[in-house]
């Protein structure tokens, strides 16, 4: 088995596992039941998506995808910490 074949099939399987994780996290995002559950699920969704981008970059063989993943995690961190802050300080409770 050549190195290319190992990389192709192995990284494809990693894609599949990460996609399963994305589907589970998206299901929790839709189901809720409360706002904090949704924010937690959003956290998992953007992290899994960034890891998908890293794996895709390995399949494409271009290291530029790592920067894309870095931007995704930075924006996701800003978003979810802002949401946590809002849940902490917001006046409305349910």
């Amino acid at each position: 088995m050549t190195a290319e074949a190992i990389l192709h099939w192995g990284l494809l399987a990693a894609h599949g596992l990460l996609a399963i994780g994305l589907v589970f996290a998206a299901a929790r995002l839709i189901r809720g039941p409360r706002a904090q559950d949704r924010v937690l699920a959003f956290d998992a969704v953007y992290l899994n998506a960034a890891l998908q981008v890293v794996v895709f970059g390995m399949r494409a063989g271009q290291s530029g995808y790592l920067e894309a993943a870095l931007v995704m995690t930075l924006l996701g961190f800003a978003g979810s910490s802002a949401l946590a802050k809002f849940l902490m300080r917001g006046e409305v409770i349910e």
């Binding site: 399987a13 589970f24 899994n48």
Partner: peptide
């Protein structure tokens, strides 16, 4: 491939726990 598969399996397991 082993490292990537291990990480992806952990991500899937974490999301399953979340659900």
């Amino acid at each position: 491939v082993l490292l990537a598969l291990f990480g992806a399996a952990l991500a899937a397991a974490g999301a399953y726990g979340l659900l």
